Amino acid sequence: MSDQGTQGLLSPFLRHRRIRAVAPWLRGRVLDYGCGSGALAAHVAAADYVGFDVDADALAIARRRHPHHRFLAAVPDGECFDTVACLAVIEHVAQPDAFLRELAGRVRPGGCVVLTTPHPAYEFVHDLGARIGVFSRDASEEHEALLDRAALCALAERERLEIAAYRRFLGGANQLFVARRRAPTRGECA
């Protein structure tokens, strides 16, 4: 797999806008879940950053670009973070509820899960753009489901997360969703 953030004419611009949307929410120790080639690392001090991705090629690029940051092919067991950032990933997972539970379990109480995801009202635009090379074809083909605000809020509430922020950006085509973690339960980060 190649760096999806560079596939498609507008993909670098879209990546930049996602990072810009989440930047105000990056606090303390940050886990960049689905870090790809590490673009978010440039916005977080090396000592406070851990990037995770399953794509070995993307991790190799990230390590070359940001040699002082930590990039891993497995989520580190037992580590807790102040922020878990997950940019344009939740739409690629088959079970978003289990996925959000995993992310929430990595955040300290008071910390945030920060997501970006396309809005389902613009799915046709995304599909068309991917077909003609404006957006990443690989990313589009890997979408499982696009979630709207109500679906994201319902997932967060089931995981005992408090909605801290929600807004649409890029003309409403993308969403920023921030959920703050409440008190821990057994087995979670404390």
Rank of each mutant, 00 (worst) to 15 (best):
65 R>K: 14
39 A>C: 10
136 S>R: 00
190 A>F: 05
70 R>Y: 02
76 P>N: 04
129 G>Y: 00
22 V>L: 03
128 L>I: 15
41 A>M: 05
85 A>I: 02
103 L>W: 02
96 P>M: 04
142 E>Q: 15
190 A>V: 06
182 R>K: 12
163 I>T: 12
93 V>A: 13
171 G>D: 05
82 D>E: 12
71 F>R: 00
107 V>R: 03
37 S>L: 01
180 R>K: 09
70 R>L: 08
17 R>Y: 09
74 A>T: 14
68 H>T: 13
188 E>K: 07
72 L>M: 15
1 M>N: 15
7 Q>W: 01
28 G>K: 09
94 A>V: 06
62 A>V: 03
1 M>V: 14
67 P>S: 05
51 G>P: 05
51 G>E: 01
103 L>V: 02
37 S>H: 05
6 T>M: 13
120 P>V: 03
122 Y>R: 08
78 G>M: 03
24 P>A: 08
91 E>S: 11
88 A>F: 06
102 E>C: 11
176 L>S: 04
138 D>H: 15
4 Q>H: 14
33 Y>R: 10
166 Y>H: 15
16 H>I: 02
69 H>L: 03
24 P>H: 09
53 D>C: 06
42 A>T: 01
176 L>N: 04
101 R>P: 01
47 A>F: 01
130 A>Q: 04
22 V>D: 06
53 D>Y: 00
16 H>Y: 09
115 L>F: 10
23 A>F: 03
190 A>N: 08
71 F>Y: 00
116 T>W: 07
113 V>F: 07
53 D>M: 01
132 I>C: 13
50 V>E: 08
40 L>C: 05
188 E>W: 07
132 I>K: 09
140 S>C: 15
35 C>R: 00
182 R>N: 12
98 A>R: 13
61 I>E: 14
91 E>M: 04
121 A>C: 10
15 R>N: 11
82 D>N: 13
106 R>T: 02
173 A>N: 11
160 R>W: 09
11 S>Y: 04
157 E>D: 12
162 E>F: 12
21 A>L: 01
120 P>E: 05
163 I>Y: 05
10 L>S: 10
74 A>M: 13
80 C>H: 06
180 R>C: 06
24 P>G: 07
45 A>N: 07
102 E>P: 06
84 V>M: 06
124 F>R: 13
78 G>A: 02
42 A>Y: 01
13 F>I: 12
23 A>C: 05
73 A>G: 15
127 D>N: 13
116 T>Y: 08
183 A>N: 08
90 I>T: 02
36 G>N: 00
130 A>P: 04
12 P>S: 09
177 F>L: 11
103 L>Y: 08
126 H>C: 12
155 L>T: 08
108 R>I: 06
170 L>W: 06
47 A>G: 08
25 W>E: 10
5 G>K: 04
147 L>V: 02
149 R>A: 10
142 E>N: 15
17 R>P: 08
188 E>N: 11
45 A>F: 03
186 R>D: 12
129 G>N: 04
185 T>A: 12
45 A>M: 03
16 H>F: 10
159 E>Q: 15
136 S>E: 01
40 L>G: 05
190 A>D: 11
162 E>P: 11
38 G>W: 00
66 H>M: 05
60 A>W: 07
92 H>L: 15
80 C>P: 10
104 A>N: 06
21 A>G: 01
49 Y>R: 01
5 G>R: 05
153 C>G: 03
91 E>C: 09
153 C>P: 00
90 I>G: 02
